[in-house]
Simulated scan of single mutants.
Amino acid sequence: ESVIEIGGGRGDLTCHLLDTGAEVTSIEIDRDLAHVLSVRFTDSGHFHLIRSDILQTDPSTLLTRGATAKLVGNIPYNLTTPILEWIIEHRVFFPLVVLMVQKEVALRLAAQPGGKDFGSLTVFVQLFYGVKRVFTLRPGSFFPKPTIDSAVIELRQLPKSHIVDAEYKQLRRLTSACFRWRRKTIVRILREEYQLEPDVAVQLVTSLSLDPHSRPEQLAVSDFVALMRELKCIDRDLP
């Protein structure tokens, strides 16, 4: 079993991963921490260290052709969105991802339609992965003690993605517009973002059995996909 670790740090998580018998490749950008890891695990035949920025790393260079790996990490909270984007881009390599993130981010990633936590990040990740919040960690679990709660999340790749790669750009445009104006109705957003006539926007929404007065957080991930495809049918040249 292969595991890729984002940021090995001083090796506390790495040690437990190695205890499972896995082949662990740790991607560590910090020179001093990379040295700590190389010294600590110098006698381990199952540990591999890559000193690099995870966002600049190509997983295909770490795995044999057709192989996959579990991806784990206590990721820097200020890099959560870029790292999630990197994971989505390289999702073919990572059927299972386990990350520690800020609790508020975990709530957003695992959110269901209808709540305030449901947003563009939710849709973005749930297009490709099922999300499970495993447990929460209080600040006292760490030293030095942070000021926020953390949570461990599990991302398990869906058997079939909601969209194909060619649709990704259009869907990002739609979800970005929707949650930028999340207090507006879907019909109003479609009118303003896509310059649709009022009756056309209403007809498009109702054709999908959606309430014209619904707001973005009330739509399911599949509703956003359906809306995007209907918009493409209206205008094949839609950017």
Rank of each mutant, 00 (worst) to 15 (best):
V200H: 06
S141A: 15
L37A: 06
L204M: 07
K70L: 10
S222T: 13
G73L: 02
L107M: 08
G140E: 13
T42E: 15
A34H: 02
A106P: 03
T122W: 00
S161C: 15
E154Y: 08
A201N: 02
D32K: 13
G8W: 00
V3F: 02
A106R: 00
L62V: 06
A226W: 03
I189Q: 00
I163E: 07
L190W: 00
P113C: 09
F124S: 04
M228Q: 14
L158T: 06
W86N: 06
E1D: 13
L171C: 07
L204H: 03
D58Q: 14
P239A: 11
L109M: 09
S176D: 14
V101Q: 00
T206I: 12
K145F: 07
L109Q: 00
D58V: 12
H162P: 03
I83D: 02
G7Q: 00
V101R: 00
D211Y: 05
K116P: 08
T147F: 10
G8V: 02
V131C: 11
C15S: 13
E89V: 08
R183P: 07
A34V: 04
V164P: 03
T175I: 14
T25W: 00
T147M: 09
D12H: 13
F135W: 09
T206R: 12
E167T: 08
A151P: 03
H162G: 12
V101T: 03
D211I: 07
K184N: 10
Y168W: 10
S207D: 15
S2H: 12
P144W: 07
